[in-house]
Design a protein around this nucleic acid. Structure first.
Length: 262
DNA sequence: TGTGATGTTGAATG
DNA sequence: GCATTCAACATCAC
């Protein structure tokens, strides 16, 4: 579920659904994902408050409370937020619920429990602490090009490094490399300015379009890599999809179509 | 039955 | 100290 466009969509729905809606109660069913807070501290920070604003940085989604504190929702691999009015609509892997005074329930589900949910007293301090790079949608071209200089890391590892640029995960990194026609294993520092500019443009256009489509991949353009991202697929006039491991993640690419720069 | 999964972290290595 | 790699985390679906 959660890379930048998915998190952006979660934030969008959250704003539309619960902003300024008074909260009555919080129930924690599995405290593993709270990471830092005890269930009591977590619940007490949220109960009898309202969410008044949101902020997204990369894959990190912050919801601001009346008190000025933020609740961080980092969705990990399988986190998602659901909204419903009856307990029988509760998602299978629900980890906590927020009950609003008007009867709406926000249910947080996370099968694999890799989420990070916590109360953030000071947003600015927290962002410095986590040392996140600039958000992928906000980073400027000059700053982006600099990330690649002198580095021997593969191109894809740069894109996925949240300390360098925040928001790109495994799937969108593959999409960017494919559309830029560059092999994800290309040496970062060996890429020419022209190639880096292409990566930059593709990164922006892919993320923007995905956000506009609310990360609903079924309506992504037909010429995207998305649906083809599987070994052995033969893309007409392009080539056969292959699999490898780059930056510790399963990586799909099309040999020859995506130029390997060393 | 074994394998892999849209993420992050911290330890180990160079 | 910096850059880079890799196992670990938890659980289920295919």
């Amino acid at each position: 579920m959660p890379e930048l466009p998915e998190v952006n969509t979660v934030a969008k729905v959250f704003r539309k659904t619960v902003l300024n809606n008074p909260i009555a109660k919080v129930e924690v069913y599995d405290s593993k994902i709270l990471r830092r807070d005890t269930p009591d501290v977590f619940a007490q920070a949220i109960e009898r408050q309202s969410f008044i604003d949101t902020y997204r940085h990369g894959k990190y989604f912050f919801a601001e409370l009346d008190s000025g504190k933020h609740v961080l929702f980092h969705l990990g691999m399988t986190g998602d937020i659901h909204y419903y009015h009856h307990e029988d609509e509760r998602p299978k892997y629900v980890r906590f619920e927020i009950f609003f005074a008007d009867g709406l329930i926000l249910g947080y589900e996370d099968l694999r429990k890799f989420s990070q949910i916590l109360i953030v007293p000071n947003l600015k301090e927290y962002l410095e602490e986590t040392r996140l790079g600039p958000d992928a949608l906000r980073i400027g071209k000059e700053a982006f090009l600099k990330l690649f200089a002198e580095r021997k890391t593969p191109l894809k590892a740069i894109l996925m490094n949240q300390q360098l640029v925040a928001g790109i995960g495994n799937l969108y990194a593959d999409e960017i490399c494919y559309q830029a026609r560059l092999h994800p294993g290309s040496t970062a520092g060996a890429l020419k300015k022209k190639e880096l500019e292409t990566i930059f443009e593709k990164m922006k256009s892919i993320l923007k379009l995905a956000c506009r489509k609310n990360a609903y991949y079924r309506v992504y353009p037909k010429n995207w890599f998305w649906e083809w991202r599987k070994v052995g697929n033969k893309i007409p006039k392009i080539g056969v999809v292959k699999k490898t491991n780059i930056g510790g993640r399963t990586t799909f690419f099309v040999d020859k179509y995506q130029k390997l720069i060393r």
